[in-house]
Amino acid sequence: MAWLRKFFAFWYDFVVGDDWRAAVAVVAALAITYGVSRTGAPSWWILPVAVILVLPLTLWRVARRQ
């Protein structure tokens, strides 16, 4: 059972890392991309826009703590 706990702890730390808000934003962007792709509309632009929006906010939050 300990190896299972370590396995999930690794993946939680890998996905969430230091900023859970960024992880939630990535999951939301992936879900929105999936939803838009199911309509037949172009969805390639959603993830780059999400990165352009989320990355500066994440960096600003970290820089503010320093």
Rank of each mutant, 00 (worst) to 15 (best):
A29F: 02
T39W: 04
V62R: 13
R5P: 00
R38A: 13
A22G: 12
V24K: 06
Y12R: 11
V36G: 05
Y34D: 00
F10G: 05
A28T: 13
Y34Q: 02
R64D: 14
R38W: 02
D19C: 10
V16A: 08
W20I: 06
D19A: 12
A50I: 06
F8H: 08
P42F: 04
Y12P: 01
D19H: 07
F7A: 12
F7P: 00
V36D: 02
G40K: 10
V54I: 10
L30M: 13
D19P: 00
P48C: 08
Q66L: 15
A22F: 09
A29Y: 06
T58S: 15
G17D: 03
S37H: 09
P48E: 05
D13I: 04
A22K: 08
W44V: 09
A31M: 11
V49D: 01
T33W: 06
A28I: 13
A41W: 10
V15F: 15
V15P: 00
F10W: 12
V26F: 06
L59M: 15
V62D: 02
A22P: 01
L57M: 11
I52V: 15
L57G: 13
L57C: 05
R5H: 07
V16I: 15
A25D: 04
A28F: 11
L4S: 08
R61G: 15
V15K: 10
Q66N: 14
S43A: 15
Y34M: 07
A63D: 07
D19L: 11
L55Q: 07
F10D: 07
D18Q: 09
W45H: 14
G35Q: 01
V16L: 11
R5I: 13
R64Y: 14
I32D: 01
I32V: 14
V24E: 01
L57V: 05
A29P: 04
L53P: 01
W20F: 05
I32G: 03
A50S: 12
L47F: 12
A41M: 10
R38F: 05
T58V: 14
S43Y: 10
P56F: 03
V54S: 07
A9Y: 07
W3M: 10
A9D: 15
P48Q: 08
A41V: 12
R64L: 14
P56V: 04
D13M: 09
T39R: 07
A25E: 03
L30C: 12
R38M: 09
W45A: 13
G40D: 03
W20K: 08
S43T: 07
W44Y: 12
L4G: 04
I32L: 09
V54C: 01
V26N: 02
R21F: 12
A31Q: 03
G17I: 05
I32P: 05
P48R: 09
W44N: 09
S43R: 04
I52D: 01
V62E: 04
V24S: 11
F14D: 06
W60G: 14
D18K: 10
L55A: 11
L55C: 00
R61M: 11
G35Y: 04
D13C: 00
A50M: 08
W44Q: 11
Y12G: 03
D18V: 09
W60E: 14
F14I: 01
F8G: 00
A25M: 05
R38G: 03
V27S: 13
P56G: 08
L59A: 13
L4N: 03
D18P: 01
L59E: 09
V26T: 09
R21K: 15
P48K: 08
G40M: 02
